[in-house]
């Protein structure tokens, strides 16, 4: 078993692509996501009709983080056409005679949302009684998407990369005949799976520490809880990923087939990882999340990072992962019977 683990480590280290994939790829992807979902500093552009708008409101609008432009009367008759022709304008804002507010926007997007929230600020500062004060139990209003969803990506990367690498390596072992040769030595079937898990487990630990340090110290993610528990959850998730990869390799005879199975293996995991709020999924389909190992890991990470939980708040999820790994371990050991009866 130790020999197998040592071999897995040596083999992975000798393959530069695998090393890159485990250590560099998650940092690269996180950096990309940091820029894509981080603070955009976008200033929305709003078109108004100066003549039909009360002067104090115009002043207030200008005081906000908005670019205000004046639109002619003619264009105001056809605001939708105007927005189509002027893509740099995010919203047209009008107030009719009876003081009802009309805001026309190009499409539902973050840009429109930004314009909308700035217009609301302007309106509420004119009318203090309509001012809304918002606050949250966890998190803050000005959190960027990266800050509020960061925990999902920590879990996803911990799972995906180890899954792909271990799954591929096991398929190669099956198709290359080394597994057959391995099974003709006195090694026990259970030891084969354990050895693999142990070997990749070492990479999982290093990877989890690397990802956590990078996201918290370089990308400035914040955790209320102890980041040690985040590392624990990520390592357990990655170990489940090794078993999961081993399971998938049973159903594939080549690396290409592992890729072909991605729609059944990885994509549901991404959907149920917490990227989409599970409570909102109809027909109770959200409960399918209990079948997805990524869900357990991400939920544990979330409880530590966002809710400030410790072991008592996440033990259920951690044991969920351990249970998942155990069941897969039994199945994988049985699947090796194909190569050796005993």
């Amino acid at each position: 078993m130790i020999h197998l683990a040592k071999r897995v480590i040596l083999q992975t280290l000798n393959d530069k692509r695998s090393v890159m994939m485990i250590f560099i790829a998650p940092l690269f992807a996180l950096t990309l996501i940091y820029f894509l979902l981080g603070d955009s500093d976008y200033t929305a552009t709003v078109g108004i009709n100066k003549n039909a708008m009360p002067a104090p409101l115009v002043t207030e609008l200008k005081a906000q983080d908005l670019k205000v432009i004046y639109v002619s009367n003619d264009d105001f008759q056809h605001p939708k056409q105007y927005l189509k022709d002027h893509l740099d304008v995010d919203a047209i804002f009008t107030i009719s005679e009876n003081a009802s507010v009309n805001i026309i926007m190009y499409e539902p997007s973050k840009k429109s949302a930004k314009a909308l929230s700035e217009i609301q600020k302007a309106l509420s500062s004119l009318n203090p009684s309509a001012k809304i004060n918002m606050s949250y139990v966890y998190g803050a209003q000005d959190n960027s998407t990266f800050e509020s969803l960061g925990y999902v990506f920590l879990g996803l990367f911990a799972f995906l990369l180890v899954f792909i690498i271990s799954g591929m390596a096991l398929v190669r072992e099956r198709s290359g005949g080394t597994l057959e040769r391995l099974m003709m030595t006195p090694i026990k079937r259970g030891e084969v799976i354990l050895g693999y898990t142990l070997g990749y487990g070492v990479f999982a630990i290093i990877q989890a520490i690397l990802i956590v340090f990078y996201s918290f110290y370089v990308l400035n993610l914040h955790s209320i809880g102890n980041i040690g528990w985040i590392v624990v959850a990520m390592v357990l998730l990655a170990i489940t990923a090794v078993s999961f990869g081993a399971m998938i390799s049973v159903f594939s005879t080549s690396e290409l087939q592992v890729v072909q199975l991605i729609p059944f293996t990885i994509i549901p995991q991404v959907f149920f990882s917490g990227l989409i709020p599970l409570d909102l999924i109809p027909y109770h389909l959200g409960n399918l999340c209990y079948l997805m190992p990524v869900f357990y890991g991400v939920e544990a990470i979330k409880r530590v990072m966002v809710y400030g939980g410790g072991f008592l708040q996440i033990w259920g999820y951690l044991f969920g992962l351990i249970g998942y790994t155990f069941i897969l371990y039994i199945l994988n050991t049985l699947a090796l019977k194909k190569f050796r009866k005993l």
């Binding site: 071999r7 040596l10 083999q11 992975t12 000798n14 393959d15 290359g176 005949g177 080394t178 057959e180 040769r181 003709m184």
Partner: peptide, 12 residues
């Protein structure tokens, strides 16, 4: 046992 294909680890 020496299998039909070489059954060795390429990266070792």
């Amino acid at each position: 046992y020496m299998p039909q294909n070489d059954a060795l680890y390429d990266d070792l």
